[in-house]
């Protein structure tokens, strides 16, 4: 395989997570944090970044150690690797972004049971090289973060009348007549249903 070919493969591993195998739209992985933390765009960014970090590190470690981990105990090993990096993220966020740490709450430690992490370790990193696994992790992470931010933007704009509240880029869209339901749990479920229907109709061409 020559260099140009290699590069295309790596770009492909990265790109597939964003659209063709988007974890939320297509694979339906990681639904719980997606619905729980997307009450604002900034929460979506924080959660996405934290999970992408864990995903990247666990994919790299798993693909490095794939010859060493015995097949029979691989799942517990993957979980421990993910748990280690989740703890790192938890401590770092607690120290440097306390507001975000409070807002995301128990969903930071719950990254460890996020199906995307274990799913990619099992389905991709345990069978592929380090570079391809890193690209896969970044692509999946980017695809997931993108969805989180999009859902967060819609829910925040409709439910709170703001965009990126709590950041320097804060924009107030409207003050009154907020559609409060959108930032309450039901809004998350209903929006998710519509997003999936949209993806079924226009992105997967199966319906």
């Amino acid at each position: 395989m020559n260099a140009a070919n290699d590069k295309r493969t790596i770009a492909g591993e990265f790109g597939k997570g964003i659209m063709k195998e988007n974890p939320i739209l297509v694979l339906m992985l990681g639904c719980c944090p997606t619905l729980a933390v997307t009450t604002s765009a900034i929460n979506g960014i924080g959660m996405g970044a934290a999970a992408t970090f864990v995903l990247l590190c666990s994919n790299v470690i798993v693909s490095t150690l794939k010859g060493v981990i015995p097949g029979k105990v691989r799942i517990p090993v993957f979980i421990v690797i993910a748990a280690g990096f989740t703890t790192i993220v938890e401590l770092v966020m607690h120290a440097f972004t306390p507001d975000l740490y409070e807002a995301l709450g128990i969903f930071i430690p719950l990254i460890v049971v996020n199906c995307i992490i274990l799913g990619r370790a099992e389905a991709f990193a345990s069978k592929n090289g380090v570079v391809a696994s890193a690209a896969d992790a970044l692509g999946m992470g980017a695809g997931w973060t993108m969805m989180l931010v999009m859902i967060g933007l819609v829910r925040e704009a409709m439910g709170n009348g703001t965009l990126f509240a709590g950041t320097p880029a804060e924009t107030v869209l409207f003050e009154d007549d907020r559609f409060l339901l959108m930032i309450l749990p039901p809004g998350g479920f209903i929006l998710m249903g519509f997003i999936m229907a949209f993806s079924n109709r226009y992105l997967r061409k199966s319906a």
């Binding site: 339906m28 039901p186 809004g187 998350g188 479920f189 209903i190 998710m192 249903g193 519509f194 999936m196 229907a197 949209f198 079924n200 109709r201 319906a207």
Partner: peptide, 16 residues
């Protein structure tokens, strides 16, 4: 509707 069959309609029901 075909696009809503399966998971999407389940999410909307969950919302209600």
């Amino acid at each position: 509707p075909p696009a809503f069959r399966g998971a999407p309609i389940a999410f909307i029901v969950a919302g209600l």
